[in-house]
Structure formats: C-alpha cells, structure tokens
Simulated assay, not measured.
Amino acid sequence: MSDASPALAIRPFHDERTGTVTYVLSDPAARQAAIVDPVLDFDLKSGRTSTLQADRVLAHLAEAGLQVQWILETHAHADHLSAARYLQERVGGRIAIGEHIREVQAVFRQLFNLERSFLPDGRQFDHLFADGDTFRIGGLEAQALLVPGHTPACLAYRIGDAVFVGDTLFMPDVGTARADFPGGDAATLYRSIRRLLDLPPATRLFVCHDYPPEGRAPAWETTVAEQRARNIHVHDGVTEAEFVALRTGRDARLDVPALILPSIQVNIRAGHLPPAEDNGVSYLKIPLNTLGRQ
C-alpha cells in the first residue's frame, strides 16, 4: 500500500438491533467515499422493511458533500439485510463483493428453490473482487483480501493501516466468527485470521459486528497487536488444531441466527428483494426442517 495516499476518514454507524457496524470511508479532499456493509432495517414479526439505518448514512453523505464510488459487502450476511440497493438508487456507487459469492449463491439457490431466473453467477453485483485486487476511493488505494472460513466469499478491505475485517474477527473479548454455515470451515477460518494477524502490529482492525459482554459498551476498532495478545479464541499460541476444536465445539451449541433466512435471500441478490409475484408483493421463503439442530 502506498505511503503517499491521502488520509482516510472513517465514520462508523452502529445498529443496536443487529449489532452491525456500517462504515463510510472517504477521501475528504476528493470528496469520494465508499460504504461498507450497509443495513436495511427488518422487523421479523411483521415482515416490514424500513430504512432508518441507511438514512443515517445518507444524511452523513449529504452533510459531508461526499460522492459514493463503492458500496462494499464483506460477505453475504446472515444477521442483517443489506441496504446496498436502496443506497445505490439514491447516491450511486458500484455494489461489490468477493467473487466466491457464486458458491454461496449456488448453495442457497438450491436451499430456497429460487426462481429459475436467479443465476448463481454474481451478476446481481456490479463488481466481483478477486483476492489481492486493488481499487481506489478518491486518491486512496484499497485492496481486497480473501479471508474465507466464516463463508467461502468473505473479504476484508485494506486501506493504508486500516482493515475492515467483516465477520472474520470480532473484538478480542468476543473472539471469532462461527464456521458452521454452508461452505464454512474452521481450519480455513484460522488460516484467514492468521493472514490478518500477520499484518503489522499497529494495523487497525474494524469489525462488522459487536456483541459485547455485559458491562461493556459496543466497540468496533482494535489492532493486530491487541488481537494477537487477547483474542479469546485465537491469540498467539493457539494452534490450528486447538482453534478448530474450540470453534467446532462452540458452533455445535449455537442457535441459528434469527435473521439468517430472510437476510440471505436478500443479500445474495445485492440488496434486491425477491421479485414481486403477480399480486405485486415480494415474499421470503422459510424452508422447513433444513437448518439447525434436530
């Protein structure tokens, strides 16, 4: 990464309901920006969507006079619906994700028995990143890093000394992402984490979610050094075999995320709702007896 890059401005938006942190990244001098992991509000009981979180982002963009170049997804999330398409319709930008989203789409196309017109080839997104691809946000150079394990398509985005790690790592006192989703793998996750923790110790890591233990306020910024010293699952000295045993054991006891079924159906479509049926209404499917423990 170039040391001559302009300063990166980072504006986080924390959503208390899902624990998600959306980021607006910008080059203030060029007034160019990217949005990372935007949230579309969803009420599971009523099936209604709303745009409270996304509208907070829009207000910031307008106030700062920022033009959006990219809307970046770290992966197809299972705990919130993406507001990527809603934001794109209002401020532009290219919606991007990792190229391995095709694998995720193929799995869930089958699980949900999606319409024949849904093709698992990534065309729903404007751009698919390969590992190591570089791109720009104004004068800032950014790089996509493949960090699979939680899902096959997980990416981290590196800009200078800041890395936006998605769900690969959480805050040190929370640990790491689960690896039991379709295509997930604990050993692969360990290697992805070590890739991140091999970066310089002062590298800033920004997590996508925080589920703080009792008594701690939500937080989302840490460092490589802090993670290596204090991460409860993968601090220095934890071997791959030890991590796999720990992660596998924990995952076997975890409940299915509350929003996984609605969110995946939207997120593999880059934030589009499923096509409306002949009555003008979009529907989300609930496959019976397929996910979770028996």
Score class of each variant (00 low, 15 high):
I97E: 11
V57T: 12
A219F: 00
G183D: 11
D278N: 13
I268G: 06
V57K: 01
S46L: 01
R269C: 13
Q67E: 13
L58S: 07
V21K: 04
D37N: 15
E115F: 00
V68D: 03
R195G: 00
T176P: 11
V24M: 04
L25E: 11
F125W: 12
H77I: 00
D167Y: 01
L259R: 08
C208M: 09
A64F: 00
R191K: 13
L58V: 06
R247D: 05
M171P: 04
I101E: 08
G237Q: 10
L189I: 09
L189D: 10
G160H: 02
D210S: 12
E103L: 12
R48D: 13
A78L: 14
Y283C: 07
I260C: 13
R90P: 07
V21W: 13
P212Q: 07
P201T: 00
H235N: 14
Q110K: 13
N113M: 09
T151V: 08
V238G: 10
L273T: 05
S192R: 02
T203N: 07
A270G: 10
L291H: 02
A276L: 12
D37L: 04
R191H: 12
Q143M: 14
A144F: 05
D126M: 08
L254S: 09
S117H: 09
Q124W: 11
P148N: 10
T290S: 12
P287K: 06
S263G: 08
P201R: 01
Q227C: 15
E221Y: 00
H80K: 06
F181E: 13
D185I: 08
G19Q: 02
F164I: 10
V107Y: 13
A241H: 03
L189V: 03
F13Q: 03
A270N: 05
V224Y: 01
D255N: 11
F181M: 12
Q88P: 06
D278G: 08
R191P: 03
A258P: 13
A4T: 13
H209C: 15
L291S: 09
I71L: 12
V68K: 02
A276S: 12
P274N: 04
R31D: 08
